[in-house]
Amino acid sequence: MITELTHVAPYAIGLSLPVALLGAGLLYVLRWRSLATALTVLVLTPLLATLAGVLGVTGFMFGPLLTTVVVICTAVGVVTVPVAVLLGRNVARRSVWEREAHARERAAEASRRELVAWISHDLRTPLAGIRAMAEALADGVVEEREEVCAYATHIRAETERLSAMVDDLFELSRITAGAVRLEFSAVPLLDVVNEVVAVAAPLARHRDVELRTADSDWPVVLGSDPELARVLRNLLSNAIRHTPARGSVVLSAGAEDGQAWVRVDDSCGGIPPEELERVFDVAYRGDRARRDDSAGAGLGLAIARGLVQAHHGTITAHNHGPGCRFEVRLPLAPADRGGLP
């Protein structure tokens, strides 16, 4: 037995070893290719090396041994090669998914750090003002009734500003946690717009901005009245803040393709193209807004996007005319679909 092995071993090794080395070389060459390709080579290499060794032993003469080995290697290859390809693709797909998940996690962490930095700055400013004015009142620095009333008015305004920031943070936390639960009903957009315009009108007058609604066929949408009002309120507030004096902010609405649309057009002068994709990011306010103390914490548009998505709608921004156009698309109420399913 040992004599036979000694006799046939050189033939088997002489043919199987080059095949194995060739397979190793292919694996090295294909190391930057797909994982499925590498696994396929890894599976085929021992099968081909085994077949080559058997051919060397049998002297390339077909017989029961060679036939059996060929059938076995073929059967094993038919099973293992597809498995290797599927496994490689699944692993590669999982790897891509993990990389994307890590990238999203890093982006979310960077966004959280930016949010904390901006909120810390924005909270510090009104708190410092409140503290200074409270100390002045406590120390008797101001005694005249009109001055005391003015200080009290400023303290109240800064307190309301802080309260609005806290409300925004709470709403944003609900959105990011997926805890927003809406009760849908038929909501006439005209009623929501009238309410929001009435609230935003004092700010528009203070900034000498014309605020008006266009003549439109105001549809009825399927949504939640308070959340829709907040969306439009945030969009109007953003438009008014960024529109210069004697500019205009216009609301319009309509319906098409089974959806309602609401547009807020301002006269801000436009947004740089590289910033358009980021206007809905948390705490992103742009260079001009960052120099404006009244710009808030940069949460309004992020909250608007989250609430619109909770309504199964979309919100977009692009440059239009002398400024920007923010467009919200929402599902129509069933009775307002005009026969659409």
Rank of each mutant, 00 (worst) to 15 (best):
T6D: 05
V8A: 01
V8M: 02
G14A: 11
L17C: 05
P18Y: 10
P18F: 11
A24N: 04
G25Q: 01
G25W: 15
G25E: 00
V29L: 11
W32N: 14
R33D: 15
A38D: 03
T40F: 00
T40W: 01
L55H: 13
T68A: 12
A84E: 09
L87V: 12
R99V: 10
E100R: 07
A110V: 11
A117V: 08
S120R: 14
G129S: 08
I130M: 14
A138V: 13
R145A: 12
A150E: 14
A150I: 04
Y151A: 15
Y151E: 03
T159G: 11
S163L: 12
E171T: 13
R174S: 05
T176A: 06
V187S: 09
E195D: 15
V196L: 11
P202A: 09
L203F: 13
R205D: 14
H206M: 10
L222W: 04
P244S: 14
S252I: 11
G254A: 04
E256C: 03
D257V: 01
D257I: 00
R263N: 12
S267M: 11
G270V: 12
V279W: 02
R285S: 08
R288Y: 02
R291F: 05
S294M: 05
G298I: 04
R305I: 07
H312T: 11
H320V: 03
H320W: 11
G321S: 09
R329K: 12
D336N: 09
D336K: 00
